[in-house]
Amino acid sequence: MSLIDDFLARWREYRAPGYYEEFDYHWTMTVDLDRCTGCEACVTACQAENNTPIVGEEAIARGRHMQWMRIERYWEGEYPDVKLRAIPMFCQHCDAAPCETVCPVSATYHNQDGLNAQIYNRCIGTRSCAVYCPYEVRYFNYNNHHWDAPLEQQLNPDVSVREKGVMEKCTFCIQRIRQAKDAAKDDGRRRVQDGEVQPACVQTCPTEALVFGDRKDPESGVSQMLGNERAYTVLEELNTDPSVVYLKKVEADA
């Protein structure tokens, strides 16, 4: 078999439907845009949980902010018939993730739970993944970051602090998932039950717009949401097959 044929064979296998079926969980988040107000509580909750740095005004001016969760805002129409539509945007944990295939050192990969994971100490900082990610949710550490003492006392000990030259992004709060799994194991259970794990953004969202859970469990809250006829994925035409599913915003005059 030629190299190309070999590659294509593997590729087809990799992208085939059901590729993830053998795995334990398929973590999924739904975002109900009819509830979300764009209040950004989730943004700060994520920053607090995941040790994302304070970068300073200058870095932000250069487009180097690091918050994994951001609220995109789109204006529609002109005054006075004008609308502002907000949408939380963060790593979509694509099942067919363009960012994964381009990493020369496989620092970003799909884990056994359907998460798009980032191995910080393998990352060599080519930034290819950020270029390939159509959702622009990967953030690169252009610098080492600094917390003015004693702000560093707040840092979450369950999450590593990333160094200069490393790419990072939303992990679905993988540290919380790990803890929930460990706890389930300690209890002699094989599976984490619905509701036992919530990422930081989900936990704080005042409007209960975010729901997180295992899509493999048909009874889970998130599975229920997926059945909603408003469900869609962003940039669906790219076939990235995201694990983040949005529920359409309802507009009275739509």
């Binding site: 949408i87 099942d95 229920q224 408003r230 469900a231 359409k248 915003k249 507009e251």
Partner: peptide
């Protein structure tokens, strides 16, 4: 990016209307 539905949509399950989830034949 932000898609819009009419009032009345999403009240209850719409079933597989959007079932492109994790089952895309590529």
């Amino acid at each position: 990016i932000v898609q819009i539905a009419a009032v009345g949509a999403g009240a209850g399950a719409g079933g597989a209307a959007n079932a492109r989830l994790n089952s895309i034949p590529i």
